[in-house]
Design a binder for these strands. Structure first.
Lengths: 172, 172
DNA sequence: GGCTCATCATTGAAGGTTAAACAAAAGCGG
DNA sequence: CCGCTTTTGTTTAACCTTCAATGATGAGCC
């Protein structure tokens, strides 16, 4: 009905997804929403915070001095500074993170993982890893894992907010 | 520091992710948050609604009579009925969806796509497909697409809210 | 110094999501 | 028909995210 090839006039009719592409796309949408919800529920239940907040604590725990500039943490977690600001405010209220002024740049703030925050992480990390394994890794062959990693990296690289290639694409 | 193998006493120490698994997992987290944000922003800008709401309209457009019971629509979109209730309320306020009583079940409600809603879909679908292509399909080989589809389907199936197998050729 | 522009981080308001509680109707077993 | 449980969909309040606006500092330039 509408797959006619030529019509260079005005509207540039779109290339709709093929049946096969639709299957892939829906699998993507379904898998990601189910997995995200699953992890959010697990962490909300066992750690009292959403998945993304947990990721912030992990990033801080791995950073030298267990601290990161707000902008760096936001880039690391792929979220806006605004969102991070709200998130850190909440984590600060929990006592898991504290803010510190940056001495070399008076605009700057460090988010610092507190001992209490580190402890929460230590207590909840095993359960979280188990959940990730059970929902994700345990269901895939090593080949599938490798393939998936490559594919997702391509997708992610295509969406980095410009400035990619500035520093190393991989962690470390 | 703590990867000693044996300690069958109490704590069942967790199997942490290997370096390779960590790379895959972070690629997953990064790709999905970047892509979700990307699509949300595109649709918010061009259609005035978040991605998930757009998906609801698509589901209704494809359903017979352009209508679906609330519970069916929620299952289709993989969201809770509560979330759907809020979403439909908003879409109704936009005039893109209306509710109708179900004659055979007085508790039931249909969400029905209005003509106006259908028109919004027709106007914004081309741009959305183009965005999906550009961010997703255009970057992957056919083999990668196939592989990804299979993998994601496995993940999704593992997380379906039970009730799978309901229609297996079982004794009734 | 003084000017301009970019960057850092936060804020407030509007909107979206979650979890628990609820009412109404349906199903089910006696 | 009667009680009991389940299903359906909504509601409320708390929480989270987004967007635009803001203040404050830094950087470059003359």
């Amino acid at each position: 009905m509408n797959t006619a090839p030529a019509d260079p006039a005005v509207a540039e009719e779109p290339r709709w997804l093929t049946d096969e592409e639709q299957r892939v796309w829906r699998a993507y949408l379904h898998a990601t929403i189910l997995l995200d919800d699953h992890l959010d529920r697990q962490l909300q239940r066992d750690a009292g915070m959403p998945h993304i907040y947990y990721g912030l604590l992990v990033a801080l725990a791995e950073a030298p001095g267990r601290r990161l500039r707000m902008t760096d943490l936001a880039k690391h977690a792929k979220i806006t500074r605004s969102r991070l600001s709200h998130a850190v405010a909440r984590l600060e209220k929990n006592g898991w993170v504290r803010r510190e002024d940056c001495p070399s740049d008076k605009r700057g703030q460090f988010a610092v993982l507190t001992d209490e925050g580190h402890q929460v992480l230590a207590q909840t990390a095993p359960g979280h890893v188990a959940t990730v394994r059970q929902a994700f890794f345990d269901r895939l062959t090593p080949e599938q894992q490798k393939s998936l990693g490559e594919i997702l990296q391509i997708i992610a690289e295509g969406l980095q907010p410009k400035e990619a290639g500035a520093d190393l694409p991989w962690l470390r």
